[in-house]
Structure formats: C-alpha cells, structure tokens
C-alpha cells in the first residue's frame, strides 16, 4: 500500500514538474470539482427564457444564450458531468473486460489467445463510432447506452496493450522463476505479471479518457448521444451549427472547453508515458528512491 502511495506521489510530482502537464492537471482538477459540485453553483442549465434566445456573451451569460434562451455557460458546466462520467464509466467497462482478456490471451498464448484476439480484431475492424451508433440504435438513447457503447469500443485497446506487455514479460526469467518454484498460473498472472504491467495500462486509462470524451461528443453531435434536455457538449455543437450565421459563439465556446479537456488528457497521457519510460530506462523501479 505504501508503495502504491509512493508511486502516486512520484507520478504527481513528475507531472507537476512540467509546465504543460501541470496546467493540464490543474484544468482537469477544476473541471472535476466544478462538475461534482455544479448543483451548489447559482446557475441553471434548464431555465428557458425565449425572449433572451441567442444573445451573445454578457456579464449575466458568460458564454451567451442558446435558441431557447438557456445559459450556455451553465450547460457547459453540466455538460462536463456528462463527458467526465462517460469517460469514467468507459474506463471501468473497457479495463474490466480488456485487461483480463489481454492477460489470459498473452499468458497462455494457445487457442485461448487465438479465439480472444479474433474477437478483438472484429471489434477493431469496425470504426468505433459506427459500432457505438449501431449499439445505441439497439439499446435506445440513454446515458447508460452511451456508457456501454463507448466502453465497449475501448476494450480492444486495453486488451492489446495488456497482451503486448504480458507477452514481453512472459518470457522474462522472473516469471519463469515463479513457475520453477511451483507458482500457479493465476499467481503468476496476477501477482507477478500484472504489477509489472501497470504503467502502459495507466497511460491507456488516460488515453481512453480523451477518446471517450471525444466519442461521446461525436455521438451527441450526430444526434444519438444522451437524450435531451441533458446537456452535452456535442449536442450543443450540433445545435450551434444551425445558428452559425446568427450566433457563431454558440458553436465556438463549448468547442473550446471540449478541446481543452481532450488536450489536457492527451498532454497528461504523454507526460505519463515519458515519465514511466524514463523510469524504465533507469533500470526498473526507481520510484522508491525518488519518492522516499
């Protein structure tokens, strides 16, 4: 436990040491806090005032108002909830299926590998957005459908990354050693290999967050995301696009927040990857020495 805590501290301090990833981390932290406590803010994403429809940014409405006179800023804040919760749910679904699949496929490498990876290939062959759309067509539009659709499209990445890492660890002597001492396959997979595989998986978690947010927004933009009136950034861009001539800010400002969120995850993902890679270059686990 102490080790995990030290590693977390070491990673956080590594991220904070770089200006770009520090800024991204702070931005995302702010987004998470604001979306968690949005109910406490004096804003209302649902209040309609048709007289005030499509008004530009002002002191009262920082991002202007939409076609029903609703405050766009409030809808952006509540939209963050949709985005971030989709990201979280997608990571949970994708990781909880993808990691075991990759682990089993890579560790045994026999028919189990062939069968599991064939299914993963099929999942990959269909562009994620199409797969998600088809699934939502079946399940109907709902928050849960969006979670599941986005989550399933993330499975192949987790499976492949875990499998690749397992394959490279599988032949290492320390894994063979456990086998030689009589350790079972399960012991080897979960106690020996998995603790050594978490760094690419962690990077993948961050990458999937940005992919999930993008996918959720794209689905909403195509009109198959969460059902209205739940605020969603993609849905706002979709409506905003119809008012490009009258109210260009409508499509631009939510897009800025969406882009910043995706960029932040991307910056953190890359910073993590390079931090973890440097650590490997330095010869295995350096965390303890640096953090303690």
């Amino acid at each position: 436990m102490n080790r995990a805590w030290n590693s977390t501290l070491w990673l956080l301090s590594g991220l904070m040491a770089r200006p770009a990833s520090a800024a991204a981390l702070l931005f995302l932290a702010a987004m998470v806090i604001v979306s968690l406590f949005a109910d406490l803010l004096p804003i209302d994403p649902f209040a309609q005032r048709l007289t005030d429809a499509l008004k530009g940014p002002s002191a009262a409405n920082w991002f202007g108002t939409d076609e029903l006179g609703r405050d766009i800023f409030a809808r952006v804040i509540y939209g963050a909830r949709t985005s971030l919760s989709t990201a979280a749910a997608a990571v949970v679904i994708a990781a909880s299926v993808g990691i075991p699949v990759g682990l089993v496929a890579g560790f045994f490498g026999d028919w189990r590998d062939t069968v599991l990876m064939r299914f993963i290939d099929v999942l990959l062959a269909l562009p994620a957005i199409l797969f998600a759309m088809a699934l939502i067509a079946v399940l109907g539009r709902s928050q849960m459908a969006a979670f599941i659709a986005v989550g399933i499209t993330g499975i192949p990445n987790f499976a492949r990354i875990t499998r690749a890492r397992v394959l490279s660890l599988r032949k290492s002597d320390f894994v063979t050693a456990v086998e030689a001492f009589g350790g079972s396959s399960g012991y080897n997979m979960f106690r020996t290999i998995l603790p050594n595989a978490w760094s690419p998986i962690l990077v993948q978690v961050v990458v999937l967050c940005s992919v999930a947010i993008l996918l959720e927004a794209a689905l909403a933009f195509l009109g198959v995301g969460v059902a209205p009136p739940t605020p969603s950034w993609g849905e706002m861009l979709r409506t905003g696009k119809s008012y490009l001539y009258e109210a260009p800010y409508y499509a631009v400002l939510p897009g800025v927040i969406l882009t910043l969120t995706i960029l932040s995850f991307d910056v953190i993902g890359r910073a993590l990857a390079s931090l973890l890679e440097d650590r490997h270059d330095a010869g295995g686990v350096q965390i303890e020495r640096t953090a303690s």
Binding site: V178, A180, G182
Partner: peptide, 29 residues
C-alpha cells in the same frame, strides 16, 4: 530441486523488495 538463472537483471521481479523475492518460494509452497 531449484533453478538459478543466467541473467541477474531479468530474473528478479523488479517490483518486489529483495526479502520478498527470496521469500517467494516459501510463500508459494
């Protein structure tokens, strides 16, 4: 019957402290 490996760099699990590495066969059995 026990085994000693050639490469001292890859035969020890990098995420375990030395005492746990040495104790691992005891725990497994």
């Amino acid at each position: 019957m026990q085994y000693i490996f050639q490469d001292p760099y890859s035969s020890l699990n990098p995420v375990l402290p030395a005492e746990d590495i040495v104790a691992e066969p005891l725990r497994i059995h």
